[in-house]
Computed example of a mutant assay.
Amino acid sequence: MKPVGFLLVLVLTAAGACDSSRAPVSAPASVRQSVVGGAPEPGYPAVGAIVPVSPICGEPDAEAPVLCTGTLVAPRVVLTAAHCVENTDAPQVLSVVFASETARALGTERVRVVDGRIHPDWRAGAHDIGVLILAEDAPVPPMPLHLASLPADFVGRTTRVVGFGLDEDGRTGLRRSGTARVTATDAGTFSIEAAPAMSCGGDSGGPSILDIDDTELVIGVTAFGDLACTTGTNTRVDAHADFLHAVMEETARAPPTRPRLDAAVDTCTVPCEAHADCPLGMACVVQPGGGRSCAVAGLEAGRFGALCSGPDGAHPCVKAGDTCRLWQPCDEAPGGGCAAGGNAGAQTCATLLALASLLARRYSESLSRSQEVKSAER
């Protein structure tokens, strides 16, 4: 995993939402292809791409960039890195794509996320493990975890890494895999080197897989690595078995549910206390005058207005179930017209860019702490 990948995608995601031209953005020359030395991988269907879902009508899900990689380990539980789930608001705007190429995924292969959990002791360089909880069962079978102690001959063995990260042309969304060699292990992590492959940018959260007694098991989660994508550090799954067991058992016992979205409801007048109180695709946000209400995830507090085919001034045209409606601030009277075409309003762009800025700043701070940890270890 190349750390700059996740930061780059966060910024480009918001910037793209404010640019109707949708022109492709080339990655810096320093960005290497995902799973360097690997190859396209049609197998491992449980390994999915974690992508943002745009709230704006007319922005196809197929164009969403890959933020991280994850592995389905229970019907509704996707294992990934903690730094992919760090922001508590992020899961409300995410989907996991279970297809070998995200741009060609069917609707049934895209599953919305309703919640996220990180290890309670997570910090940069330690316990970098978390999960995303899906709104419904995934369309593929889970992959088994190796929760027993690692084999005595683990160092020196070959592991397989899988991910959807940036390729050499700055594109994401193709599942790739390759083999790496284990070089060292400690209480919570293990290190790998290219043999000849290595995970890179966008592969964060992806699995390291080991063949044990003719069964392929997930033994690690891609956490961080060097900028040249020649070495990497993985979080050990067996060392965090209690955390994973607890989340998987809770999700199996009480699968998360969300109320049905009804665009006719005046969301500004219906209070909420947590994201779970809101319909799928919405989040519990603070209103300008105080109090909290459900809003389209990624946007500020507001209500659904008239049907639309494009933005109307500062009112973005947002997805509302099977329809598109204008999104209006709570301090504005219900109603409003509809204008076809045009760019998303300034309010939408400001909101998305603010969210990206916040996530980017947190990730940058996390990366700095991680590099300090690595320097101290040396």
Rank of each mutant, 00 (worst) to 15 (best):
L7H: 07
V11N: 09
A14R: 02
C18W: 08
D19L: 14
D19Y: 09
S20L: 12
S21N: 09
R22W: 13
P24W: 11
A29Q: 13
V31D: 04
G37R: 07
G38N: 10
P55G: 09
G58R: 07
D61N: 06
P65G: 10
C68T: 03
C68A: 11
G70A: 04
L72Q: 04
V73M: 06
P75T: 09
T80Q: 00
T80L: 00
A82P: 03
V85C: 03
N87S: 15
T88Q: 13
A90P: 00
A90R: 15
Q92Y: 09
V93K: 05
A99L: 11
A99H: 12
A99E: 05
S100E: 14
E101D: 13
E101Q: 14
T102S: 05
R104N: 10
A105P: 01
A105N: 04
E109I: 07
V114W: 09
G116C: 06
I118V: 10
P120D: 10
R123C: 06
D128N: 06
I133N: 01
L134M: 06
L134S: 09
D137L: 04
A138W: 10
P139F: 04
M143R: 15
P144Q: 12
P144G: 13
H146E: 10
L147N: 10
L150Y: 15
D153L: 11
V155W: 03
G156Y: 15
R157K: 12
F164K: 04
G165W: 09
L166W: 15
L166F: 15
E168L: 13
T179R: 04
T185W: 03
T189A: 05
T189D: 09
F190K: 01
A194C: 05
A195D: 07
C200V: 06
G206Q: 03
L210T: 00
I212C: 00
V218I: 03
A223Y: 03
F224N: 05
A228C: 02
V237N: 00
V237K: 00
L244H: 02
H245R: 12
A246G: 01
A252F: 07
A254Y: 09
P255S: 03
P256A: 05
T257D: 05
R258Q: 03
P279T: 05
L280T: 03
M282E: 08
M282L: 12
A283S: 11
C284S: 02
V296R: 13
E300G: 12
G302M: 05
G305D: 00
G305Q: 01
G305P: 01
G305F: 10
S309C: 08
G313K: 01
G313H: 01
G313T: 05
H315A: 13
C317N: 04
C317Y: 08
G321D: 04
C324K: 02
C330I: 08
E332H: 10
A333Q: 07
G337E: 04
Q347G: 14
T348S: 11
A350W: 08
T351R: 14
L352Y: 13
L352Q: 15
A356M: 08
A356I: 10
R361Q: 12
S364R: 13
S375E: 13
S375D: 12
S375I: 15
